[in-house]
Simulated assay, not measured.
Amino acid sequence: MLWSYVQLDDGTQFAYSETRDDGTVRVAVERPVDFGFDHAECFLPAVKWFNVEGFSTDELDFLTEFV
Rank of each mutant, 00 (worst) to 15 (best):
L2D: 01
W3Q: 14
W3R: 15
Y5S: 09
Q7R: 13
L8F: 15
L8I: 00
D9F: 11
D10T: 10
D10H: 07
D10Q: 04
G11A: 08
G11P: 00
G11E: 05
T12G: 03
T12Q: 09
T12D: 08
F14G: 02
F14Q: 03
A15Y: 06
A15I: 03
Y16Q: 04
S17W: 01
S17H: 07
S17T: 07
T19N: 13
R20C: 01
D21G: 13
D21H: 06
D22T: 06
D22P: 06
V25R: 15
R26Q: 14
V27A: 09
V27F: 07
E30I: 14
E30W: 07
P32R: 00
F35V: 05
F35G: 13
F35K: 13
F37I: 12
F37D: 04
D38L: 05
D38Q: 07
H39W: 04
A40I: 03
E41G: 01
C42Q: 00
F43C: 06
F43Q: 01
F43T: 07
L44F: 06
P45G: 04
A46D: 15
V47F: 01
K48C: 02
W49F: 09
W49K: 07
F50G: 00
F50K: 00
V52G: 05
V52R: 12
V52S: 06
E53A: 13
E53R: 12
E53W: 10
G54E: 14
G54F: 15
S56G: 11
S56I: 08
S56K: 14
S56W: 10
T57W: 05
D58K: 07
E59H: 11
E59D: 11
L60V: 08
L63D: 02
T64Q: 15
E65T: 06
E65A: 13
V67L: 15
V67E: 06
V67S: 05
V67P: 01
